Simulated scan of single mutants.
Amino acid sequence: MNITVMITCIGGGLSAQFIQSIKASSRHNLRIVGVDTNDTPAARHFCDTFHRVPSGDAPEYFDKIKSICAQESVDLIFPCADEEALTLAAHKAELLITGTTVACNDLDLLQIFTNKLTTYKKLAQLGIELPIWKEATGQESTLSAVREIMDITGEAVVKLPTARGGRGTLVISNSLTETISFEGSRELHMNLQTFMEKHLSQLPSEPIMIMERLVEPVHDLDILSWQGQCHYLIPRKRLNSALPNEGHILIENTPMAEIGRKVAQELKTSWIFDIDFMTTKDGKPAVLEINPRASGSLSVAIAAGMPLFDDMLSLYGDEPIAPTHQSYNQIIFPYTALAKR
């Protein structure tokens, strides 16, 4: 199949690897249109053409994307950032009229996935076991929830429902005597007294999430589904929980995969997306969040021999796909390389 694909947000650390990987397809002849908010992402050199665009939540973003799609005759847009996926999902029908398909789920689903509280409420409705969690609004409610969870587990985590990448996350444990930043992440760890004195009054007035502290490492579950049917469920364990681009080990984790399967089947998902997991202290998989688009480290699974993107294109083109054997215990790691044009 000959196809022009727009890849958004190509400034990610593994974007160059991802674009090289999908262009190496033996089944599809891809022409890649890369877009990013910056002029100089390294991945632009592996695209057939490149355009700078506004941020995905900017008022002018969609008009710019629509213009590029017309100019480049784009068949398919593969969004790689949350804001872009949300904006593009809201305009799916308009783009489809002009011949461009957006490779993400519909807006109603994405709006659930981009809020941790609505995600957990939906997972609870599906009967998926969850860690201890509570919704709180205001200082009194928040402090009560924190104390209740700490009484049960000894620690508590306060999260902003729509924040990403650990932004605004506060881990509260009385084993600490000072506030620390956790292993290069955006989390702050502190004791209850520090939380009450320095952070409680700074929390937003809208509902927030309080939950038990989960156990590392973080796992990513890559899912390719089509109208609820799962074709890939690939669990990967991060070598560094705070830095997903530092490598993964592909593992076999049936409980984790079955949660992903249930989400896909019950919500009738399509395209590629991923679920982030940790575990509870008794070793059970616990959903951290469901991403509204593919993982930024999707190229890890492709490098391990899983042709998710190829098969996604085949499903989009109504072409049959063959089962792929999944190899476990592979370590996929990054290294520095050079290329020339």
Rank of each mutant, 00 (worst) to 15 (best):
G184R: 01
M150C: 03
K23Q: 05
W133C: 01
L86G: 05
F46L: 13
F195C: 00
T269I: 09
L95M: 14
D63G: 11
L30H: 07
S15H: 02
K198R: 11
H248D: 04
T40H: 11
G166D: 00
G247L: 08
G228V: 01
L221D: 09
A90I: 11
H248F: 12
D276E: 15
L96R: 15
M211A: 11
E140Y: 08
I22D: 09
N240I: 14
T40W: 13
E140T: 12
D274Y: 02
Q125Y: 12
A103D: 13
G168D: 02
N329H: 13
P255I: 07
N29F: 12
R186S: 11
P255F: 03
T179Y: 01
K66Y: 06
E252L: 03
Q265N: 10
S73V: 14
G154C: 04
I10E: 02
Q20M: 10
G228T: 01
A337D: 14
G283T: 10
L200M: 05
N240R: 14
Y61W: 02
A93W: 08
V218R: 06
N29S: 13
L96K: 15
S144A: 09
S25I: 10
K134T: 01
L192Q: 10
E84L: 11
R186C: 08
R261L: 15
I275V: 15
D75T: 10
Q20I: 13
S175L: 09
L126R: 05
E197G: 09
H189Y: 01
Q111M: 14
G154I: 06
S225D: 03
L203D: 08
N105V: 07
L117H: 09
L76S: 12
S241V: 01
T254C: 08
S314F: 00
W133I: 03
Q20A: 14
R167W: 02
T194W: 05
P307G: 02
G127N: 05
H45W: 10
A163G: 00
E94L: 06
T8I: 04
I234H: 08
K237G: 03
C104H: 04
I302T: 07
D48K: 04
S181E: 05
L298Y: 03
G260V: 10
M211P: 00
N115G: 04
S26R: 15
E246S: 10
D151S: 11
V215M: 10
M312I: 03
K122Q: 11
P59E: 05
A303Y: 01
H28L: 03
T177R: 15
K64C: 15
D36T: 04
E84S: 07
Y232T: 06
N240D: 11
N329S: 12
I272P: 05
A42K: 08
K281F: 10
T269S: 06
L267H: 12
I249F: 03
D36V: 04
P323R: 07
T114D: 14
P292K: 00
D48M: 04
T169N: 00
V171Y: 00
P255K: 07
F50G: 02
T324L: 06
R341C: 14
A294T: 06
P285L: 02
